[in-house]
Amino acid sequence: MTVEDQWFDDEAGPVVRLFSMTRGRTRPTEEGLFDLISLITAVHRDGAGESDLDLEHRAILDLCRDEPLSVAELGSFTDMPVSLVRVLLGDLHDSGLISVTRPVPLAQLPDERLLRDVINGLRAL
C-alpha cells in the first residue's frame, strides 16, 4: 500500500479537510453568537444572494427554511462538526440570509425561590 492509497478511498472519495470548506477560518466573525441551542431560521429572500453559496451553505439554508433549528441539530442533520457549522452560519448571518434567536442568559431568568413564592401565593388564594 502506497502513501497515496491511505489518503484516497475508492468508495468514500477523496478526503477533504474541514478548513478547506471555511477557507482556513476556524471561528465565525461574531464570536459567541452561535450557542449550541441558538435557533437558526432562514430569511426568505426569494433566492437573492444564494446563487454564489457553497453546497454546505445551501444545505444549512434548506434545513432552516421550514422551521427554526438549533446549531446542534444542524450539526447532526448535516453530519458536519459543530465548529464547522458555526463558521458557515457566520457567513450566512453576515450575508443576511439567516436570523438567530439566542437563549435567555441564566442571569436574566427569574430566581427559583421567587417562582416558588409565587406558586405558594397562588395556592393560598
Rank of each mutant, 00 (worst) to 15 (best):
E31I: 12
G13Y: 04
L125F: 08
T2E: 10
S20D: 03
A12P: 01
A48V: 07
Q108V: 13
H93S: 09
A107R: 05
D79F: 08
H57W: 01
S51C: 14
T26M: 07
L74S: 10
A107H: 15
L114I: 09
I37P: 02
H57D: 04
D46G: 09
A59Q: 07
D9H: 11
M80A: 02
A42M: 00
G32V: 11
R45H: 10
R27H: 13
P110Q: 15
L97W: 06
F34P: 00
L109Y: 07
M21D: 03
D117E: 14
I37T: 09
R113F: 13
S51W: 02
L18H: 01
H57I: 04
A59F: 06
D94F: 09
P103H: 13
D46E: 11
P68N: 03
L63V: 08
G75D: 12
R113G: 14
E73N: 06
E112V: 10
G49P: 08
E50T: 12
A59K: 09
T22A: 04
L18K: 11
L89T: 00
D111M: 07
V16E: 11
D52V: 12
S76P: 01
T29I: 15
E31F: 15
P103S: 15
V71F: 14
S99W: 10
A42Y: 01
F34K: 03
L115S: 11
L97M: 15
A12D: 08
T101E: 00
R102M: 08
G75K: 04
A12F: 03
E56T: 11
R102H: 08
L109G: 10
R25I: 05
E67M: 00
A59I: 01
G96L: 10
R123A: 13
A72D: 04
L74G: 12
E67Y: 01
L88R: 14
G96K: 09
V82P: 03
D66I: 08
L39P: 00
W7P: 01
S83T: 02
E112S: 13
V85N: 04
E73V: 03
D46A: 08
H44W: 07
R113D: 12
G75A: 13
G24D: 00
I60E: 04
E73D: 03
L109K: 15
D54W: 15
D5F: 13
S83P: 06
G90F: 02
V82D: 07
L18M: 01
L106N: 13
E50K: 09
D66G: 07
L125D: 10
V118N: 14
A48K: 06
A59V: 12
D52Y: 13
L69N: 02
L109I: 08
D35T: 12
A124C: 14
L97F: 04
T101V: 04
V87D: 00
D62E: 05
L106D: 14
R123I: 01
